[in-house]
């Protein structure tokens, strides 16, 4: 599903974020990327989504070489991905409902189906009762869950989450992890970055440990 082959990523200025990284993730796997901040976790996820391109090596997603994709093809790659951003990237000029609606509008799905899908996604993360609220009125944990709802509303086969439990206390963090586990059970491929060791301890999970841009 996702395959890195000798990937190097150097940012302008010479900073090497990833060095010779290779791994394969099979369909339906749930994989954690761990490491301290600055280890290259975010860069790795950005390469999968085509937000950054590798300097050398290949990044394959669904057998498509992301690094070689033309700009016009990128949107269609991203529609198969659900991305949960570290900084949420919620829009505060519209309701919770409309935030989740955005990906469906972008994909141009049928109008009548949309409301149903949005409510289903909100229901999954437990925000159904807050659909009319403005995201700014939500707590940190709720905002994170809203971000998840937006990422899953168009039923992507791959879910990318960048530090989804970053600023949450342990209880909320476990709640979020439970949600991810439920997606894992229905066959979604998940790639989650975290520096939170407590999250990693429960259950046997596959883990890609990054240290200064290299896989350990």
């Amino acid at each position: 599903m996702i395959s890195f082959n000798q990937v190097n990523k150097r940012y302008p200025g010479g900073y090497e974020a990833l060095k010779n990284v290779s791994f394969d993730i099979a369909e339906g796997e749930m994989v954690f990327v761990s490491g301290h901040s600055g280890a290259g976790k975010s860069t790795l996820l950005k390469l999968v989504a085509g937000i950054e391109r590798p300097n050398s090596g290949s990044v394959l997603v669904n057998n498509q070489n992301v690094g070689a994709l033309k700009g016009a093809a990128l949107p269609y790659l991203r529609r198969n991905l659900g991305i949960i951003f570290q900084d949420h990237k919620l829009l505060f000029d519209r309701s919770v409902f409309d935030n989740v609606l955005l990906p469906l509008q972008i994909c141009g799905f049928d109008h009548r189906e949309n409301a149903k899908r949005v409510r289903a996604a909100l229901d999954k993360v437990g925000l159904l009762k807050r659909e009319k609220a403005n995201p700014i009125a939500l707590s940190g944990g709720e905002q994170q869950r809203l971000c998840i709802a937006r990422a899953i509303v168009n039923r992507p086969s791959i879910l990318l989450a960048d530090e989804p439990t970053g600023n949450l206390d342990t209880e909320y963090a476990h709640e979020i992890m439970d949600i991810f586990r439920s997606f894992h059970q229905v066959g979604v491929t998940l790639l989650i970055s975290t520096h939170d060791e407590s999250v990693l301890q429960d259950g046997a999970v596959r883990r890609l440990a990054l240290k200064q841009g290299e896989l350990q």
Binding site: P75, L77, K89, L91, L102, P103
Partner: peptide, 16 residues
């Protein structure tokens, strides 16, 4: 800006 940025990140085409 924010809306455009987010839209791009979640798969909006330039036309959209």
């Amino acid at each position: 800006r924010d809306e455009i940025e987010v839209s791009r990140l979640i798969g909006a085409t330039d036309g959209f």
